[in-house]
Design a protein around this nucleic acid. Structure first.
Lengths: 325, 325
DNA sequence: CTGTTAGCGCGTTCAA
DNA sequence: TTGAACGCGCTAACAG
């Protein structure tokens, strides 16, 4: 490994001079500069980033924590990384398998100065245990949370869900089932609020049996499909908290000889790849913009130059899993 | 940032002693050890990994290069990262968008000592430009390549494809269309060899029009669907090189009023999430094992302790997109 | 068993 | 405009 000193010797100058041309800092005569450049070329010199980072205390990399590889993550990760790359940052990916300890290890990377900031797609630990890491660098998340120590790129699921439910109502659906996410999630709470209001305003009975808290496990949608098939009092339509779960549901009922929207309507949420493939009507909420905002926040905290945060929109995408009037 | 020196002062020992208890190297009296431990606790000392790495020249992280976020990548990435984590490695992800320059930047991370080894899911640059990086650390790839400077975790697509085609034949399919990947890809070449042999042996005419070199672009499957619909001489079944493309094809023909396997049979390849969701018959070729092998190779090159390489198997998964006799 | 010393590779004063 | 010297935080060789 050639070092700055080898270059200095070769060029017949001191290592400080080499450092100066490397960083473009301070005065260097054209002559020495040329000598140094030539020497670097000859030797094939490569600066050691590690040493630089140790010196500057900056790694130019962001940690991306996710519980596991979810299909809805794809687009998000792609855009996040794109933004990062465009702004000179690398991305370190940590998959925790939903293991609290592993999440902490990943967060520790911030302490250990291995990353400058961290993005948490979906948290596993309580916020209380995550919060202390804030002192080591900026945090941002996809979870919905309204606090000042962490940035959350979220859209208002209350409004989004209400809009979606009203759409279902206009299509003539009356018996609506709801498949929600983790109950502690703020998005879930927002949705619960929306759906209670919706049922109340429209005088529709709310069947608690079809107010499902999905447990996030893989193939949760398939379990719900079996529930639905075995049910004696089936809802006409199911509104899911994610396209993935909706896709699993549809996949399973098809296996069981049912079809959609003939036997049951399905509304997804995310507008991800799978929903397009399977023609699932869904709600788009600017996932791409959320991703770039998530990075933008971290970047803005870390640098002087600011990237603007983009505004988010919610929009219903009509495809083929809901009946049309 | 508390350093090793702060701890030393607090404990009333020298920094070497602190270092010794930190690394469990050399002799330390129980007494000093306890003092140091207490001091670290009080101060809330966190070792700086960067400094350690600078010292040791090792980062314990592997670079994972992929052209873009592909859905088939999910399972692979998940398993790869799992193996890495279990063996004490981090993973740095680089998405290149198929940009050669970006791929080189990522490879440079190996030079810059930012990663100890690199895995290339799918290359963008020619092998010639990738090869020189081998001198900076071990390389491994998902591409098929048989050379000694890079490890390739591949299965024999010749045998796999032949097996699949024979299955189609046994199900009574005679007019078979083939959708292949990038023509320079060795897997594609292996498949071409297999299909030519298959058509020859079974005396089936090979319609060159349905020997398609997909261009890897997004929604390539949809284009093929349109081709198929407009064709006057449609094949009875299409064998795809990937589940993703097969899924796009099916999605599109459904949009156009056709269905599968009634109007056309479809065979995918990968056995990924999407194919399960959409009931696509496909070929499983131990993707998980390939992923863990890919990491295992890098690990083995980097360490004394060896992880065994697992053997791969190819297997046809029957679902619902092929007719059954 | 412990402290002193010398690096790892680089950036940055401070004089000259 | 340049070089000497110091420091980033840590490990390891050496002497005691």
């Amino acid at each position: 490994m050639a070092t700055i000193i080898d270059v200095a010797k070769k060029a017949g100058v001191s290592k400080s001079t080499v450092s100066r041309v490397l960083t473009n800092n301070g005065y260097v005569s054209e002559e020495s500069k040329q000598k140094v450049l030539d020497a670097m070329d000859e030797i094939g010199y490569i600066p050691n980033l590690l040493a630089r980072q140790l010196q500057s205390g900056v790694t130019k990399t962001i940690g991306f924590i996710a519980p596991s590889y979810m299909s809805s993550m794809g687009k998000f990760l792609q855009v996040f990384m794109e933004s990062a790359k465009n702004n000179g940052y690398f991305v370190n990916l940590y998959l925790t398998s939903g293991d609290k300890q592993k999440e902490i290890e990943a967060l520790n990377q911030l302490k250990y100065k291995q990353v400058d900031g961290i993005f948490i797609l979906t948290r596993t630990n309580e916020w209380d245990v995550i919060k202390p890491f804030k002192q080591y660098g900026p945090l941002s998340t996809w979870n919905r949370i309204e606090e000042d120590w962490i940035y959350s790129s979220f859209v208002d699921h209350y409004e989004g869900y209400l809009m979606a439910l009203n759409y279902l109502y206009r299509q003539g659906y009356q018996k609506i089932g709801h498949v929600l996410g983790f109950y502690k999630n703020l998005n879930t709470k927002a949705r619960v609020k929306a759906l209670k209001e919706f049922h109340e305003v429209n005088h529709l009975p709310l069947d608690e049996k079809w107010l499902i808290q999905s447990n996030f496990k893989k193939n949760g949608g398939r379990q719900i499909a079996n529930m639905w098939v075995e049910s004696t009092d089936r809802p006409e339509v199911l509104a899911f908290y994610s396209d993935q779960t909706a896709a699993e549901f549809i996949s399973e009922i098809e296996l069981l000889g049912f079809s959609c929207p003939k036997d049951v309507g399905v509304l997804g949420f995310d507008n991800n790849e799978v929903s397009e493939l399977m023609h699932i009507s869904t709600v788009d909420y600017s996932l791409e913009k959320q991703a770039s905002n998530s990075f933008a926040y971290l970047y803005n905290e870390l640098n002087e130059k600011k990237i603007p945060i983009q505004e988010l929109k919610i929009q219903l995408i009509e495809r083929k899993t809901l009946r049309r009037l």
